[in-house]
Design a protein around this nucleic acid. Structure first.
Length: 854
RNA sequence: GCGGGUGUGGCGGAAUUGGUAGACGCGCUGGUUUUAGGUACCAGUUUCUUAUGAAGUGGGGGUUCGAUUCCCUCCACCCGCACCA
């Protein structure tokens, strides 16, 4: 028998699918649609195993849904703008466009070698003017609707490179290339009004019942709705009060200081008169813009010398500090500090010797000690005049009422979600299609001038943005008055590109952002698959974009992704040489003793932890090499089989080998069986032998469970069931087959090939042909499980005594309860375990378990 | 720091969601066949144990007739934190 040659077979079927245009989808309102989408990749140059895992999962769903009779849209594109292309331009002198398109070409080939059921006719790249021009059109529509506005906001500024840095480019407060201490700077930037949608984005999460709970929870917390209060404090000797936001107005009597952000107008004003404050603010501005850095930093502040009057405690004054842990972006940028009941405030108070007054008591103790831990739990209010004895919630209501009477505060709903700043001072992104005119101000580019294309002749040798430096690009006439004006030289955040690509796929070549009939048919995406790292920003921004596109008439939906699945990462062991250098897995082999050694020189290798694959630790495997070695089917099978799809999986060569072996085994089995048994009658026999019936039962049960497992995206379980089925097939004696047994065997072979189809499509297609099928497997229907073959009439029940397993009994399905008890008690091992003890009661869970309680 | 998650044999994991823990795969051990260079098949494989049992799902505690599953607490690792994508 000739060996299965994966390379030839895989290429053959890929060509066949392409020739038949199997996966090209057209909107067709007579058929039910199913839109499967995996998060599109950034064209970094090569696909990695994470991509293989992600796209294989999507492909299984796409092929399965197609077999179920759906009109399936399964497109692919490229998230092609972004920083790495500019870094490559700087480091290697290659133009971002050239670098990007070369990467796309290579990655497209790699993806094609995986045999994915993608509609390549709908391919898009966000860096193509055909895409970003339409994005500019959307932007102008949003602008007209008031969904975009300009505002000053903070950026990380590298004073040596004279450029804005991304958070990841700031390392320990310093620029990654220059090493210069990074400053916060204010720039005029475009913002999307996503915060106007806070309530809607929050409420609608409830209906996203095909999203993972944890993602919904993370979004809920990110939006961060809080019920609190605004409180005005009179500043001693000033006319303007200090306005704060708090979620704990009930702790107002425990206030011992006020704190404002370094960016608060009050701090800014005082800095002009006080060097100490100015210096402190300058220090705060060296902290970077990320919330993580701010929260982790030591709580510090400087006393302004100003004081406020406590609104309820006669004569009590509280000092105002400028503090590094107060965020200008949240609430009003000012707080009152209640150290006893907030950890940050407590750390701060201990550092500056401020008073700590407990106002919530957890127990009967009327004056609990506060050590170095703030008390944030429930309790009764103490030390708080008219609030004493109240529970926290009623105290909140009470004090807000009193504040309102005094005109010094009111109940307020606050959201943590901030507007989305989209301006980037970079070249490789979508130009913002507006012009700044001295006479007319900010003017939208005329629609007929779209796309505003990126200039190609740019250099990256100067610090700052190439668009800013370009000799002519930015100089254009004002679209309104025609006088000399300048383009906005900023480009859009790449999150904008990925916030509507799923809609563009419906009509990828349209001369407008989308064609309504197409998006009306295809959207929303029925199953979206991608990494958990996008749980918040990308998904939230896309949800906002859908709403904004609805408001501007481009779509009918609020929620873009009906079903969401977040897959885990792929990890690998790490290896180091004797001298401590990281080694690639392919540089490592094992010797006769099973110890790992370096392939090059035979020296021992130190094995490190299992970590997320990363270039820096070299624990990466190249999918191209894997596919070359094992074939695409084996690679696909392995990434599906090994771990639950939402969890991290560890890549091991042994695992891939196991997948390869199964592929060979299945191939050999079908080939040999067909050789021995030949063709079968197509008419189903009326009677089956016991062995044939047994096989059929396994086959149909497998259909039922694999179908359910794929619906639930539990691919690893589907594969385990297929392995069990394979075992049953192996046990089936194929010598001297009667006609009915032959028929049952053929049925089972067809079923296993069909079930394997979405996962190992090339092998399955090959075997399908071998079974005499004319139609492509890719176009044929999913098998149905016969209900009469999947029910069992005998059930094995467990018998426990005091919760410990003592016996199992075989009984008829749905056997009478007292009969079950009788059989259970008749077991010798059960009697032994009961011994002299009296039986207190017997619990019988039908068809499951008997528990004798003594 | 804040928010979210994960933890089960030597390894990846399963457990119909409160009902026989370890399905299935890998690895390993023994055997059969001899494939001579990722071979196939059969048997075994949680740990301890006086072979009767006992313990066991990251540690500790709790609820329950019964807990991998629910609650509390601690530990370890992972993801996100608004300019990486």
């Amino acid at each position: 028998m000739s060996r299965y040659n994966a390379k030839e077979v895989e290429a053959k079927w890929q060509a066949a699918w392409e020739q038949e245009k199997c996966f090209e989808a057209e909107a067709d309102s007579s058929k039910p649609k199913y839109y499967v989408l995996e998060m599109f990749p950034y064209p970094s140059g090569r696909i990695h195993i994470g991509h293989v895992r992600n796209y294989t999962m999507g492909d299984v769903v796409a092929r399965y849904k197609k077999a179920q009779g759906f009109n399936v849209l399964h497109p692919m594109g490229w998230d092609a703008f972004g920083l790495p292309a500019e870094n490559a331009a700087r480091d290697q002198g290659v133009h971002p466009a050239e670098w990007t398109y070369a990467n796309i070409a290579h990655m497209r080939d790699e993806l094609k070698s995986m045999g994915l059921s993608l509609d390549w006719s709908k391919e898009i790249a966000t860096c193509h003017p055909g895409y970003y021009g339409q994005q500019q059109k959307l932007f102008l529509d949003f602008l007209e609707k008031g969904l975009v506005y300009r505002k000053e906001s903070w950026v990380n500024w590298d004073p040596v490179d004279m450029t804005v840095l991304a958070n990841e480019q700031v390392i320990d407060g310093k620029g990654w290339r220059s090493g210069a201490v990074v400053e916060k700077r204010k720039l005029n930037q475009w913002m999307f009004r996503i915060s106007d949608y806070s309530q809607d984005l929050l409420e609608s999460l409830e209906n996203l019942d095909r999203w993972p709970d944890r993602v919904r929870l993370m979004q809920q917390n990110w939006i961060g709705k809080s019920q609190g209060a605004h409180v005005s404090f009179d500043i001693v000797g000033e006319t303007e009060p200090l306005e704060i936001y708090t979620t704990r107005p009930d702790t107002l009597f425990g206030a011992s200081f006020m704190a404002v952000s370094a960016d608060h107008p009050l701090a800014q004003r005082l800095a002009k008169e006080s060097n100490q404050i100015a210096d402190f603010i300058a220090e705060c501005h060296q902290m970077g813009t990320s919330e993580e850095v701010i929260e982790k930093a030591e709580k510090r502040g400087v006393d302004t010398g100003l004081e406020v009057m406590h609104p309820f405690i006669e004569g009590k004054k509280l000092p105002i500090y400028v503090a590094n842990f107060v965020l200008m972006e949240y609430g009003t940028g000012a707080i009152f500090g209640c150290p006893a009941h907030d950890q940050r405030d407590l750390d701060f108070a201990r550092k500056y010797g401020l008073e700590v007054t407990p106002v919530v008591a957890s127990g009967p103790d009327e004056n609990p000690e506060i050590g170095n831990e703030a008390y944030t739990g429930p309790g009764k209010i103490i030390n708080s005049d008219f609030l004493n004895g109240l529970e926290i919630e009623s105290a909140k209501t009470e004090i807000i009422g009193r504040l309102e009477e005094l005109g010094k505060g009111s109940a307020t709903v606050n959201y943590r979600l901030r507007d989305w700043g989209l301006s980037r001072q970079r070249y490789w992104g979508c130009p913002i299609p507006v012009v700044h005119c001295e006479a007319c101000g900010v003017v939208a580019e005329k629609e007929e001038n779209l796309p505003v294309k990126l200039p190609e002749d740019v250099t990256f040798d100067k610090p700052g943005s190439p668009l800013e430096h370009h000799p002519s690009w930015k100089h254009v006439p004002c679209p309104s008055c025609g006088k000399e004006a300048v383009r906005d030289t900023d480009t859009m955040d790449t999150f904008v590109d990925s916030s509507w690509y799923f809609a563009r796929f419906c009509s990828p070549r349209a001369e407008q952002p989308v064609e309504r009939e197409k998006v009306d048919y295809w959207l929303p995406v029925d199953q979206y698959i991608g990494g958990i790292e996008h749980a918040i920003l990308h998904l939230l921004y896309s949800r906002f974009y859908s709403r904004a596109m609805k408001e501007t008439g481009w779509s009918h939906i609020d929620e873009p992704f009906d079903g969401l699945f977040t897959q885990g990462m792929v990890t690998h062991e790490t290896y180091r040489s004797e001298s401590g250098e990281w080694l690639l897995p392919e540089e490592v082999t094992s010797n006769d003793n099973g110890d790992l050694i370096e392939l090059a020189n035979g020296r021992p290798v130190k094995v490190g932890g299992i970590e997320k694959m990363s270039k820096s630790k070299k624990n990466v495997v190249d999918p191209g090499a894997i596919i070359d070695k094992f074939g695409a089917d084996a690679a696909r099978w392995y990434v599906l089989s090994d771990s639950p799809p939402d969890r991290d999986m560890e890549w091991t060569d042994a695992g891939a080998t196991g997948a390869w072996r199964f592929k060979q085994r299945l191939h050999r089995f079908v080939v040999e069986t067909v050789e021995k048994t030949g063709q079968t009658e197509s008419v189903e026999p009326s009677e089956f032998s016991e062995a044939a019936l047994k096989l059929r039962k396994v086959a149909h049960k497998t259909v039922a469970s694999v179908t359910r497992n794929i619906e639930d995206l539990h691919f690893n379980n589907a594969i385990a069931r297929i392995y069990e089925f394979m075992k049953a097939l192996n046990e089936f004696d194929i010598s001297n087959l009667a006609d009915d047994e032959k028929w049952a065997l053929t049925e089972s072979m067809e079923i296993i090939v069909r079930l394997v189809g979405p996962m190992m499509p090339h092998l399955a297609e090959e075997l399908w042909q071998m079974l005499g099928k004319e139609e492509l497997l890719a176009l044929s229907a999913w098998p149905a499980a016969r209900p009469d073959l999947i029910v069992e009439d005998q059930i094995t029940m467990a018998v426990q005594v005091k919760g410990k397993l003592r016996a199992t009994i075989d009984v008829a399905k749905d056997e009478q309860q007292d009969r079950v008890e009788e059989i259970a008690l008749a077991q010798k091992s059960v009697q032994n375990a009961i011994g002299e003890n009296a039986i207190r009661k017997i619990i019988v869970v039908p068809n499951r378990i008997v528990n004798v309680v003594i």
